[in-house]
């Protein structure tokens, strides 16, 4: 190390000395203090360069769009390009927009049903395949398999299985006297069908998240509890559940974000129902898309986007508070 520093210092001793004349590092000789400072500056410059591509990319393609949404929400945009400042008119319009509130209701239903059901299903699957049995690896992979398919493929596949009067699942329903049910064409059933498909798509992913948490629980705890005669249910409630809390929390966060803004809230709706029948499956993100790209109303779409971002910031902010306020940067300077 010393030779390295020496060669480096010898080339620059003069400027280094010049930049640190004040000698803030009281105990150090002027030259060494300048060297440390120079090194730190070199490190900071390297960090800047390493961060540059992602820094620019995230700013241009995420940061600015968020700010732009707020800006554009104050304008009325006609066709392509004519901006007229309208103040808060776009926001005022929301109050009387019943279709918007219907879409909020759809997204909330999604949230209230999808999140807990998927949680329970995924956790149950994880408990089921946690320990070895013949073919456990294959079974785990099968549960995950729907998640590697695109939602477009999933959408057309389920549509195919649910074709009125002919699809294989429609016929299966016939066994239970549900032959004439149109699963995707009935307003009161379409959202439920969509949620079932979303659960099928997501459960394997969440199962693996739970498996990660479960493998962290020391086996000795379970062994000891078994020897002490604890039942399987007791072992679950007294050992597994409390120790799994961080994972459960993470799964919930991921699941909530997915239900409100994930691709399933758009792709699946677009392919399966286009928001119908009678707007019964129009989610908020699908409604925003329609406003912007079907009706060309960028201003109004931007206004709804602004409120959605605000909602997400508040929700995740609250979650960060619950999780000991951003422990992400625990090791930052």
């Amino acid at each position: 190390m010393s030779t390295n520093l020496a060669t480096r210092a010898s080339g620059v001793s003069n400027p280094a000395g010049a930049t640190a004349p004040a000698g803030n590092h009281s105990a150090l000789p002027v030259k060494a203090g300048g060297m440390a400072k120079r090194r730190r500056r070199r490190e900071a410059r390297a960090a800047f360069l390493f961060l540059l591509p992602d820094g620019i990319g995230l700013t241009v393609f995420v940061g600015i769009p968020i700010l732009l949404a707020i800006g554009v929400s104050l304008f009325s945009v006609s066709g392509f390009g004519d901006y007229v400042y309208v103040g808060l008119k776009n926001f005022q319009r929301m109050g009387s927009d019943t279709l918007l509130w219907q879409s909020v209701g759809v997204t909330l239903t999604m949230l209230i049903v999808f999140v807990p059901v998927t949680f329970v299903v995924a956790l149950a699957l994880a408990m089921l395949v946690k320990d070895r049995f013949p073919g456990v690896g294959v079974v785990r992979a099968i549960f995950f398999l729907p998640n590697v398919l695109s939602l477009v493929v999933i959408g057309v596949l389920w549509q195919f299985m649910l074709v009125d009067k002919q699809g294989v699942l429609t016929n299966l329903g016939g066994i239970f006297g549900l032959q004439d049910v149109s699963w995707l064409g009935t307003p009161s059933l379409a959202l439920g069908t969509l949620i079932v498909i979303s659960i099928w798509f997501t459960m394997g992913y969440q199962m693996f998240l739970f498996l990660g948490g479960l493998t962290d629980i020391p086996n000795e705890y379970m062994e000891a509890a078994k020897i002490d005669g604890a039942s399987a249910w007791q072992r679950f409630t007294k050992i597994t559940w409390p120790l799994l809390a961080p994972t459960s929390f993470f799964v919930l966060v991921v699941s909530i974000v997915a239900a409100v803004t994930g691709v399933q809230a758009f792709d699946l709706v677009y392919i399966l129902t286009k928001g119908g029948p009678a707007n019964a499956t129009t989610t908020v993100v699908f409604y925003i898309y329609q406003q912007a790209f079907t009706f060309g109303d960028y201003g109004y779409a931007a206004a709804i986007t602004t409120l959605l971002v605000a909602f997400l910031v508040i929700v995740t902010g609250a979650m960060l508070l619950v999780t000991r306020g951003g422990r992400f940067n625990a090791d930052a300077d």
């Binding site: 992602d54 820094g55 995230l58 241009v60 393609f61 995420v62 940061g63 600015i64 769009p65 968020i66 732009l68 949404a69 554009v72 974000v257 803004t261 994930g262 691709v263 809230a265 758009f266 993100v285 925003i288 898309y289 912007a292 960028y298 779409a301 931007a302 986007t305 959605l308 971002v309 997400l312 910031v313 995740t316 951003g326 992400f328 940067n329």
Partner: peptide, 21 residues
């Protein structure tokens, strides 16, 4: 923290302004 906070926002949310940019 700034970079991580962008994880909040998924494509469907910023689609319209992103398209404009």
């Amino acid at each position: 923290l700034l970079m991580i906070s962008t994880m909040l926002v998924s494509l469907p949310v910023i689609l319209v302004p992103l398209f404009m940019i």
